[in-house]
Design a protein around this nucleic acid. Structure first.
Lengths: 148, 148
DNA sequence: CTTCCTGCAAAAGTTTTGCATTAAC
DNA sequence: GTTAATGCAAAACTTTTGCAGGAAG
């Protein structure tokens, strides 16, 4: 899915947690492993379903810690549930196709030329509103093949 | 804010509600009026604050009905609360700058050239994943001038 | 051992719903 | 008059938190 190996991901997450004063515990390793192999943003209950040893409240708690450490990113869709994925500096910059029917999410990337003109336009637009833009979020909304 | 008059907005909302078997009641008119004059997406409590005659549960209920009718759109940010705004075909296509600190949202637009190349790239990317894309959502994430 | 982490259960916060009353047509 | 909409209170659901026991270094 990405060029990153499990080892290099674990090393990065370990550093990030250490820098923020946390341990890379067994539960956190399992969490990262589930997100890594899913390759798309998951809800809390999808994570628990994917690994029965995980407990709902611990997943919520550790996703928050991993987010603060910069290892995972909160992804909001149109649905009721918040989803999480590995942070982009651990994987790579990408966008989401969101199914407005079932809420499922798939990753995709844009040509770098489009990314660049987008970035430039955003800087200009933000400047007008005296916002400082850190990054952007682009989602395609539609219907997935199972929901047609 | 847009070229639309209050009258033309009300006519459109009235049609949309009528087509979906609902009435354009007083509460719904007030709701539309609050969203119209805000010119940016509002949370349920921001709406209630803006018009004391409105009641929390009725606002939730009517926002859902207006959304089903296609008159308003649900806007998800990084914050806890769902926000709503008038649908784009009632106002105009635009994007959001979201303050990751306070959650506030401001509208902005992109040059149509950028919009077009974006649209084309999305179609291509979606095609690969056998998704049918209806529209897109582009948000700039950053810090607003009050939160610096 | 000392500190952090986990799991369970209970709480908090947002959104939805049931029902009797009121408004719209 | 008949049907739909409203307000209140209670419920449902997602997410957070307190605390006692367990794991990690």
């Amino acid at each position: 899915m990405t060029g990153e190996t499990d080892n290099s991901i674990n090393e990065k997450v370990n550093s990030l947690l250490f820098e923020s004063g946390h341990r890379y515990s067994t539960v956190r390793r399992r969490l990262v492993s589930v997100l890594r192999s899913a390759g798309k943003p998951l809800t809390n209950s999808q994570i628990v379903d994917a690994d029965d040893s995980l407990v709902q409240s611990s997943v919520y708690r550790n996703l928050n810690i991993l987010e603060e450490a910069g290892a995972v990113t909160r992804v909001v869709t149109n649905g009721e549930f918040t989803r999480y994925e590995l942070a982009e500096h651990i994987t790579e910059h990408h966008h989401h196709i969101i199914c407005t029917s079932c809420g499922d999410v798939t990753d995709f990337s844009l040509p770098s030329t489009v990314e660049k003109s987008l970035h430039n336009s955003l800087q200009k637009a933000a400047h007008k509103s005296s916002f400082s833009v850190q990054n952007h979020r682009l989602d395609a909304l539609g219907t997935c093949s199972s929901c047609v």
